[in-house]
Design a protein around this nucleic acid. Structure first.
Lengths: 315, 315
DNA sequence: GTGAAAGCGCTAACAG
DNA sequence: CTGTTAGCGCTTTCAC
């Protein structure tokens, strides 16, 4: 008991005994056992993070944000790569809920209410990026509509009038929201809307390269790519064809990946503040864990327009 | 006890009881408590991974390799971003060794024997990338000398004779090994060695951009950059100056980051098989945990030359 | 094939 | 300020 008090910064112990105990622990190489502690305190000082792919910059930054916040608060992080597979997600969730963590941050795969109802009854959880309607839990995400509005408005202001779009898949919420913003901005500016210059894709570099040709042949004066990787594909095509960016073609991306500023023509894009997303999610979760009264929070962050040169200099 | 047997695939139980128990568990939402289990089995089914920065592609891929191997073996992963700070590393190590993990994979920060001696007495550990001499533990890394030899030889074969080099910091083992390879290849091919076209740097994009000018002014016919990001900087400089790669200047990188194939001129580089590094490290660790007899292993992987277009097409 | 007893290493609660 | 008792939820061992 005295040892326990010495190691847990209790004030019910004299400074002298405490020092003696601490020294003895060091000499003997004694370390407390977290499992035994967990068993009685019902707390693990661990958080689970379920993400699609740690190899993707967007998710890596979110993880870093989570990790750095947790470190400050004395929590550890269990990382689970779902690989965008529902089944992996399920298995990790199962693993985590064997009393391994005090809470879970999840970037879910095709979330459905039923998948999480059981879990949130026992384990605090915050969802990030994608939400399942009807769940009474906290949610943190980026405002895709806002971000796309910013960048499309910028393009319009720069004088572009025939803006081609390379979207992601039809089932991607992010992609659909950005598309919605595109339509609204065009309408607000009385610009003709033409579905022939809107293309769905898998959002890869190759898609950017291939769809660029398609769009340019249809006479677009600029392209809004669903992400920076796709924009890289477009830029590559233009480079090979001698098409000057931004003079012959305006180009905008999304995500602000590290390399976007290193492109031959630095890319105008949207920064989603991924690290912040991670930090906020972690903060909400830790608060929820430590407070008895749970208050659901929904935080939708405004991403930030990053103006570089691919749509012309700002003026 | 019967429940325990049902949940642990014991054969000392009838099929019928087992099914009944399993069903009851499901109905009641019962989940076993891993802490209680740990306490008695002295095993956590958890591995700690200490890496410098999850945001860096190189480390992200290593993490993914570790994670995917562990998943197959039913282990969880505790991720610790040391942020290249010795102090963070120490604190994470301390946290992990409170009986939280069955083993540790570490990419150490300026490793010294003394930092790990205590730990490896109690906890299986494998070191990756950087080794501390005198430790009796397994080690997994890339052969930097070999990788650089491959790419410099390729450059020589392509006809380049005045190869400028942008290195990393003087204290980086990886950088020093690659430099050593450079010198040896030059000597073997009777090419003059000129320290005026060797520069140390912080290995950033900006360094690439700035040092490119310096080297080109000194008449190099090609540049070997310490990594792909630095190479991107060089490429940017060339783009702005209208210098044609590979005709006017050969360019080689190292790492094979995802974007290196998307550059205006696809980059010739060296792939280090990072995911494999992670998988192998995890495999060695798990083996060490499960075998009573510990056999130290040292695995130095041969990286692979990736020939693209920045040093001319292969012939 | 099933169950009872004991104990893993801690801390909550209380006694001194 | 220090120590005793009990018990967290499991598995090991042994009895039936």
């Amino acid at each position: 008991m005295t040892v326990s008090r010495a190691l847990n910064n209790s004030k019910e112990i004299s400074q002298k005994t405490k020092e003696k105990v601490l020294k003895a622990c060091k000499d003997l190489g004694y370390k407390p056992n977290s499992a035994a502690k967990s068993l009685i305190t019902k707390t693990t000082k661990m958080i689970g993070l379920v993400i699609p792919d740690i190899t993707n910059q967007y998710y890596a930054y979110i993880s870093k944000g989570v990790s750095s916040y947790l470190e400050k608060k004395g929590y550890g992080l269990i990382l689970c790569n779902s690989d965008r597979k529902k089944n992996n997600e399920r298995e990790y969730l199962n693993f985590l809920t064997e009393g391994r963590v005090d809470g879970i941050i999840i970037l879910p795969v095709e979330p459905k209410k039923e998948d999480y109802e059981q879990i949130i009854m026992h384990t605090p959880m915050v969802m990030v990026d994608n939400f399942a309607e009807g769940l009474d839990i906290s949610f943190v995400a980026n405002d895709n509509y806002y971000g796309a509005t910013q960048i499309i408005e910028h393009m319009v202001k720069q004088g572009y009038r025939k803006i081609g779009v390379i979207l992601g898949s039809k089932s991607s919420t992010a992609s659909n929201e950005r598309y919605r913003a595109y339509k609204d901005v065009l309408e607000k500016n009385n610009i003709d809307f033409d579905t022939n210059i809107i293309i769905y894709s898998n959002a890869t570099f190759e898609d950017g390269f291939n769809k660029a040709e398609y769009l340019i042949n249809r006479g677009v004066d600029s392209i809004f790519a669903i992400n920076d990787t796709v924009a890289m594909g477009v830029m590559k095509y233009c480079y090979l064809k001698g098409i000057n960016i931004p003079k012959d073609l305006g180009l905008a991306g999304y995500d602000n990946i590290e390399q976007s500023s290193m492109f031959p023509v630095p890319l105008t894009t949207v920064d989603q503040n991924n690290k912040l997303i991670g930090e906020i999610s972690a903060k909400i979760l830790i608060n929820q864990i430590n407070e008895k009264s749970f208050k659901k929070e929904t935080i939708i962050l405004k991403p930030k327009l990053i103006i570089r040169k691919s749509c012309g200099e700002d003026n």
